[in-house]
Amino acid sequence: MEVLLAILIGGLYASGLYLMMRRSIVKLIVGLAILGHAANLLVFTAAGLTRAQAPLVAPGEDAPPPLHADPLPQALVLTAIVISFAVLAFTMVLFKRAYQTVGEDDLDQMKATDT
């Protein structure tokens, strides 16, 4: 299963990076979003994959069941999801304004624009 996930992560990275190297900003932003998913999955998988229970403590117990998923990478990924959303939202709005002003989504055309 880990190998399959590794292939998926590799595929997501490849797609994301390929899109980011396009001249269109829309593709750049989509690529950024895919890259975010890839990174989250990377952290999640690298910390150890398990089909065990979620790290929840049942009522009346002091600790989660002995076999449970690792909570720490989950906390990290949770933070990462939220932050990548913030970055994405800002990028999109920035793009919207730039597009309204320049009327162009080609990065090479924008490069020469000073307005």
Binding site: E2, V3, L5, A6, I7, I9, G10, G11, L12, Y13, A14, S15, L17, A38, L42, T45, A46
Partner: peptide
Amino acid sequence: SAGMLMAALVI
């Protein structure tokens, strides 16, 4: 190639 590298890193 970058994707393959990342996959290898995960493994």
